[in-house]
Amino acid sequence: MARLNDDAQWIVLMGFIVSFSLFFLAIVVNQSTVVGQTTAEGVLEFPKNDIRSVREEVIACSDADMDKVLKDMASIAMDRKNAVVSFRITQAPQGLPFNKTFEIHYNNGVTAYNETATY
């Protein structure tokens, strides 16, 4: 044999073309599933409703009940949700446009939320 015969290389070329198109198709498929996936998981993972409920309960709490409510929430949250909940209510000085400052702390191991709200 004097030289290599390359008559048959178009078959392997077609193999490559098919492989590449398959590869790009896979990328597209992967991307499209990720859209819905991340939205739903993001929504479920971030405890929006939990935090809102904690926040509303804290703001509804009066000075006199603070200790009891804090103990209730801290122990129930730890028991049921493995979350750390704590808060502090302080009376704002005279002359400010709000009466009270609420410092709220929430941490469930994945999401930590800290807020200083004034009302």
Binding site: S32, Q37, A40
Partner: peptide, 21 residues
């Protein structure tokens, strides 16, 4: 390939996300 595409109901998945938003 059809097996690969069977999970690609991208439409409804995306629609649910937009509806939520």
């Amino acid at each position: 390939i059809p097996g690969l595409l069977i999970s690609l109901q991208g439409g409804t998945i995306d629609y649910d996300a937009v509806a939520y938003r």
